[in-house]
Amino acid sequence: MRMDGFKAIAIVAVLVVFAVFAGMLVIYFTNAVPAFHRFGIDVYLKNIWNAAEEPSREAYGIAAAIWGSFYTSLIAVLIVLPLSISYSIFVVDYAPKRLKNVIIILSDVMGGLPTIIYGIWGAFVLVPLLRDYVMQFLYDHLSFIPVFSYPPITGYSYLSAGILLAIMVTPFASAIIREAYEMIPYTYREAAYALGATKYEATKLLIGYIKPAILSGFILAFGRAIGETVAVSLVIGNTFNLTWKLFAPGYTISSLIANQFGNAFIYEYMTPVLYAAGVALFIIGLGINIIGLRFIRRWEENVKL
């Protein structure tokens, strides 16, 4: 295509953006290299954190943080699932028009709320609440079940982080699912009712139709949850703890970076290890988002059928 004034200017901007992205890749990988050299793949597979003035005594493996990222996001998504599907059905099928607008606006406000506000509320309100009323109860009565077997002393834990993340990303998954549910061509709705379906049965049928969109909503919600930093780091307890136990404190990759980067320069290998953690987060985030976006695109094509 011929170059013209617009293209010449705009392509510069586009190149800047690509350069920033490529720059991020380069920075993360090159800075992580010493960690890979020293610890190999163990930097991801081992759960160890020995910071030492003497570089030869340093040893790091961030398995617990990687685990924590997945585990908290999984807890979050499992809670998001019923909430956001119910929300979408309620808003589209049942809520009267005015209520519908109010609900959607509230949900959008929740989605846009600064994460630090979730953080302070999580640390000072949600955590004590969960500890005193949920965790203590489950621990007292059901601690023979392994996931409930950690004594909830502080309340800062995987469960708290998972629940806070769920609250934060529900609006986001809800928006995706609601849009998909609303996009179902009217004719399918008519067809369901024409067959004598009750509203509940029609809903069930149509939810089946948007399964790919629901799936992508969850994948993208998972991606958001895994990348969230400050709110999580204020409620998760920041401890290396590779366990299923819900009430145990833990770490996530992003909260590890947020917490340790400030003093990492003191040690020879800690900074490279944190960059390696960044690489992991980078790859996980990229992979999850590409898969999620794929699904949603496939769904959009499906609707046009």
């Binding site: 004719t187 008519e190 067809a191 024409a194 139709y209």
Partner: peptide
């Protein structure tokens, strides 16, 4: 209305078999 619709079949302008079934 559901009882009515059970006894009356309907075919639409746009062929709309459920794509996910």
């Amino acid at each position: 209305p559901i009882e009515v619709r059970k006894q009356v079949g309907m075919v639409f302008q746009y062929p709309n078999p459920f794509p996910h079934l």
